[in-house]
Design a protein around this nucleic acid. Structure first.
Length: 496
RNA sequence: GGUCGGUUGGCCGAGCGGCUAGGCAGCGGUCUGCAAAACCGCGUACGCCGGUUCGAAUCCGGCACCGACCUCCA
């Protein structure tokens, strides 16, 4: 029996009990990157949020098919130019070289932040035939028209049958028209300003083009997600995700396209992540208020005082809820980094906690069991990572107290001790996808041997009250980023 | 301009009618050769003005500021 889960559905504007279309299976589609440039840090936050959702759904016992696309054609910008074509000209490369370059860099970044790969990662250019089919379906059903070789979605025709267009983004078409009215100039071949292209006739110089009965051209951006989601997940599937800036027009138009083509809306639950700010303001290249993942890793930016590891950044992001805006700053990262280290140290500590013999019951059990169950309950409430994290830190305090003997480990039963360890490991490593990245350089076992030797030499010096030597060893190690911790039963060490 | 969301202590960030969020920083203590770590304890909050309520950070109204979307964006 899979535990219940509540998900905030953008479609209804409230939390709903999650009921998958096919019991024990979940189909999830998330809009992936347009590979014309490096991933934006805000993009990373969004993908991390969905990575945690993916991991948690699997942890609950669902069989999850997670589809995240690569947009490698059709994403237009102001003036109707294809982003990838434009970048190709700029870098003097073929469009597909641009696609390859930035797809690889995107994958590298996902790996660095320890994201699981999606189950399927389709490319828009790999699904052109299906997109052409969907254009035909929409045309045949009377919700699109041809104009000068391009095919436009006919909002007015659609509205007559489906007056709920705009529901997801809370928009009324009348309002849309008021704004888009003066935007007519660039697209005089449209019947109506709110109409959008599902097939674009290619300009002669446009290299990415496919032959159809209407023109040589390429598919519209909204169309590819409509096609790839339903091709791999079925006409209706469970969860559709993306950044909340995609609600309109992208997701709204996806719903319209799928409904126009096959009569049903694609997704049951729509999940939208919120934006990442920096120093309280939106990240903006033009205002110099921006930072890239690479700059965070190297510390090479005026906005930060030092380098931060990918896992410290991932931890930082999990401290806020995915539906809230999050403000990144040096102070906030500094604090997050320390909290992250404390958490990782506690995992190591917990794994070393042992009973000398099996203990059947303990007086601390009743106090500890609610702490063990809390992270699960918080995650089941719309993936509340900050509250789950807070619950895990309650557990960390207990683990540390047991370790130093301030709480008596013999007052905890063996099964409860085991559950404490499992909870910490499962949530931090398995669901939050964190790992200890401090020991990444070199062979840890050799290093540990060396440090143990120094610890022994220092212990001898301390016994001889040779404080000068013992402090020299400790300070030298500190300078190398290795911290010694003198406890009651000997000295241990961690990376700082 | 229109639509929607936000404003929580030194910083980040949960909570969203009565119940300690958490992390980091600060203060006091225990431990220690000293320090660090760890543990225990402490403090400083809910943008402003009204209203509803026995009770409001949480609900309602107004104002101010910030942000998102409306155009490419996660």
């Amino acid at each position: 029996m899979i535990p219940t889960l509540q998900i905030y559905n953008s479609l209804s504007g409230k939390k709903e009990i999650f009921e998958p279309i096919h019991p024990e299976h979940v189909g999830m589609y998330v809009c992936g990157p347009t590979v014309y440039n490096d991933v934006h840090l805000g993009n990373v936050r969004s993908f991390i949020s969905f990575d945690v959702i993916f991991r948690f759904l699997k942890h609950l016992g669902y069989k999850v098919r997670y589809v995240r696309n690569i947009t490698d054609v059709g994403h237009l910008q102001d003036g109707g130019e294809d982003k990838i074509s434009k970048r190709a000209k700029l870098e003097r490369l073929e469009p597909m070289e641009i696609v390859q370059k930035y797809t690889i860099r995107f994958h590298d970044m996902m790996r660095i932040f320890n994201l699981l790969p999606p189950s399927i990662e389709p490319h828009a250019t790999g699904n052109i035939l299906e997109q052409i089919e969907m254009v035909r379906d929409i045309l045949n059903n009377g919700f699109a028209y041809e104009s000068e070789g391009s095919i436009y979605f006919d909002i007015q025709a659609y509205l007559k049958k489906h007056p709920n267009y705009g529901h997801l983004s809370g928009r009324k078409v009348d309002e849309l028209l008021a704004v888009t009215r003066d935007d007519l100039k660039g697209h005089s071949d449209k019947k109506h300003p709110a109409d959008f292209a599902i097939w674009m006739k290619a300009e002669p110089e446009h290299i990415m083009r496919w032959k159809t009965e209407w023109s040589e051209g390429f598919p519209g951006w909204h169309l590819e997600c409509s096609v790839m989601s339903t091709k791999y997940l079925g006409d209706t599937f469970d969860i559709h995700g993306g950044g909340n800036d995609l609600k309109f027009p992208h997701h709204e138009n996806e719903i319209a396209q799928n409904t126009a083509a096959c009569g049903v809306a694609p997704a049951k639950y729509w999940v939208h992540t919120n934006m990442l700010l920096m120093n309280g303001r939106k990240m903006s290249k033009s205002e110099g208020n921006t930072i890239t993942p690479e700059e965070l890793f190297t510390g090479d930016s005026a906005h930060i005082s030092k380098a931060y590891s990918p896992m410290a950044i991932r931890f930082f992001m999990l401290q806020s809820h995915y539906r809230s805006t999050m403000d990144i700053s040096d102070d906030a990262l500094l604090a997050a980094e320390k909290g992250y280290h404390r958490l990782m140290d506690a995992i190591k500590t917990s794994n070393n906690l042992m009973h000398s013999s099996v203990i059947k019951s303990g007086v601390l059990d009743a106090h500890l069991i609610p702490l063990i169950e809390a992270p699960m309950d918080e995650m089941r409430d719309d993936f509340n990572t900050p509250k789950a994290l807070a619950a895990l830190f309650d557990l960390v305090t207990k683990i540390n107290a047991l370790n130093t003997g301030q709480l008596d480990i013999n007052q905890v039963s063996s099964p409860v001790l085991q559950r404490m360890k499992e909870t910490l490991n499962t949530f931090v490593l398995g669901i939050f996808g964190l790992k200890d990245d401090r020991a990444s350089a070199g062979d840890t076992s050799t290093l540990d041997g060396l440090i143990q030797l120094l610890i022994q030499l220092r212990a001898q010096a301390r016994e001889d009250k040779n404080w000068a030597l013992s402090d020299r060893i400790r300070d030298a190690l500190t300078n190398l980023g290795i911290q010694l911790k003198d406890g009651q039963d000997g000295t241990s060490w961690t990376f700082v």
